[in-house]
Design a binder for these strands. Structure first.
Lengths: 335, 335
DNA sequence: CTGAAAGCGCTAACAA
DNA sequence: TTGTTAGCGCTTTCAG
């Protein structure tokens, strides 16, 4: 920078002003400085800037696992939203492990970023206070509500209810609630099960508890395994509301192997609208959780906290809209 | 840090020594300092450290697209390898666009990291010199060989040959080379086609050029589309060697819709061993490219360049071993 | 084994 | 509109 100043015949400060688009600079001075920067190939040292200004231009995205397509797609959307604002994204994987989720939040790495998008699986409502760290945090997901930070999530209850009503509308009655977590009230599984039940209740129908299926980890293999157990148990069903796409796809595979036709014998709907649902055989009906809007909103809220003129604004809870996407797996069979 | 030094009754330098595990410190001094750090909740300022030491502890991973499962899994492996060395990873997506790939490399963001893992799709051999930037770079992928930087890749030719030989061994002869790029010599498509042809040549068999199928982008949808065209053309075939898993899966779907049985009518093998291949129906035979080893090796080489005692070592070309993974899609049908 | 002092490259406050 | 100066928090000589 000193070299640039020298070569352009101005002071260091002027160079700084040019770089930062400080408004009051004579046009020819600016041009001269820009030229010199170009010819010398000068690039600002981000560490120094970070040290001085207290801002690094990076945010962190903490997620359980990139190999999980939902989170890879979320990361993609977050990076797009961040790039629009000139931010880079550092991704940290927690593996959905509680200790690791906390460790990451407290770790020195988080000092390298201006803010944190924090998508947790293991932390729960009782950990709300632990999320209160000096760095701005925007929480994602369904594990903690009413915590000390901004929170962006989807309308889980309503979405699950809509998915279930979609199944009821096609005439199905023996519907699996596929992906429950026993005793969970809050969290994706708990909320989605609640929405599922609401659909039955308000239709004045009874739902057989034998049709509530626990699936531990919501990976494809878990869905496959759980479906095998269901088939082995001999319980009768004509539809599946799966609480995410991965387990829906795993379950579909097992049903097809067992000779069940989808949607003729069993209709299926998932959750997340991952890309693969458009290409599976049959294509999978699902809930679009508004991933891009979630990412965009989360980054926006985080930026507001970072630039922080509104220091004392209360934590905000934002619920993004969803859409029911009907595909082959829940088509009404025309006879 | 000053506060810590004060509270512990030592100098700033001593605190720094403790933090950096400088060897010659009396044990009780170290303990005292560590205690104070703990109680005060001190955390070092990474920007300042970066400014002073010239190292930030971050590396960048430049990839085309996280939504592409192969790259998401690669990113996962890279992050694991980086975490082992205390590094954090910044991911940049290029979209496989040439301008963007170059822009990223030259951008100010790259000043925030100690090194770059650079996985390009659009850049080609003729761009080799452009990759020669001051920051250490390790190149991934098949677009540039013999460039100015270290390079880690898989044995593409050999792997494609092995995949094809696997098909030949199961008695197939009308084998589609699925995913070619016309006129490409280097690059994944070119190399894999070369390996494909080698298998035929050394078996003394002729391969019908009508069975070489161009697929532009190697996304699932492209594979589906290309397979539709093949079926419409009426050309006969009994096996598919697809140059990646995504197009293999897309093609499988189309074949199944068309009533072809896999592997009975058509055997299929892909490339990449993405997780989904273990769960598709049927499960997909594939080439395991040694993703973890690629990531581990790439990070190791990069670290060597960063710590850089071996400044003048010549660029290294490393080819990682692959494995043929046989699954349902290429099982020999027992009659 | 520990302390003092310099300076990494930048921006903010103030002065001219 | 531009220049001068101080200092962000740390590591690194160099002395003790």
């Amino acid at each position: 920078m000193r070299t640039v100043a020298l070569a352009a015949g101005v002071s260091i400060k002027t160079v700084s002003n040019v770089i930062n688009d400080y408004p009051h600079i004579r046009e020819d001075t600016r041009q001269r400085v820009l030229e010199v920067i170009e010819t010398l190939g000068y690039q600002p040292n981000l560490s120094a800037r970070g040290l001085r200004s207290g801002r690094t231009g990076a945010i962190s995205l903490v997620i359980p696992d990139l190999r999980n397509v939902y989170f890879a797609e979320l990361a993609d959307s977050v990076m797009a939203a961040a790039a629009k604002r000139g931010l880079v994204v550092m991704i940290e994987q927690s593996g959905g492990d509680r200790e690791r989720e906390l460790e990451i939040l407290r770790g020195p790495r988080m000092r390298m970023v201006d803010g944190i998008l924090y998508s947790v699986l293991a932390l729960g409502q009782e950990d709300a206070d632990l999320v209160d760290v000096p760095t701005p945090v925007v929480l994602l997901g369904e594990r903690i509500f009413g915590g000390p930070t901004d929170h962006v999530t989807m309308k889980n209850v309503e979405a699950a209810r809509a998915a279930t009503e979609h199944m009821l509308a096609t005439g199905r009655r023996r519907i699996l609630a596929f992906g429950a977590h026993e005793n969970e009230v809050i969290g994706s599984a708990g909320l989605r099960l609640r929405g599922f039940r609401q659909a039955f209740d308000s239709a004045g129908l009874h739902h057989d508890d034998a049709l509530v299926v626990d699936v531990g980890n919501w990976h494809r293999g878990d869905g496959a395994e759980a479906m095998r157990a269901v088939l082995a148990s001999g319980v009768a069903f004509d539809a599946v509301v799966a609480f995410n796409d991965a387990i829906a796809l795993g379950a579909m595979r097992v049903m097809q192997e067992a000779g069940l036709r989808i949607p003729d014998d069993v209709a299926v709907i998932g959750f997340d609208n991952i890309e693969e649902t458009r290409y599976s055989l049959p294509t999978l009906s699902t809930i679009d959780p508004g991933r891009e809007e979630i990412a965009e909103t989360a980054v926006r809220l985080l930026m507001e906290r970072i630039t922080g003129s509104e220091e004392r604004i209360a934590p905000r809870e934002i619920e993004v809209d969803f859409r029911v996407i009907q595909r082959e797996s829940s088509t009404v069979t025309v006879l």
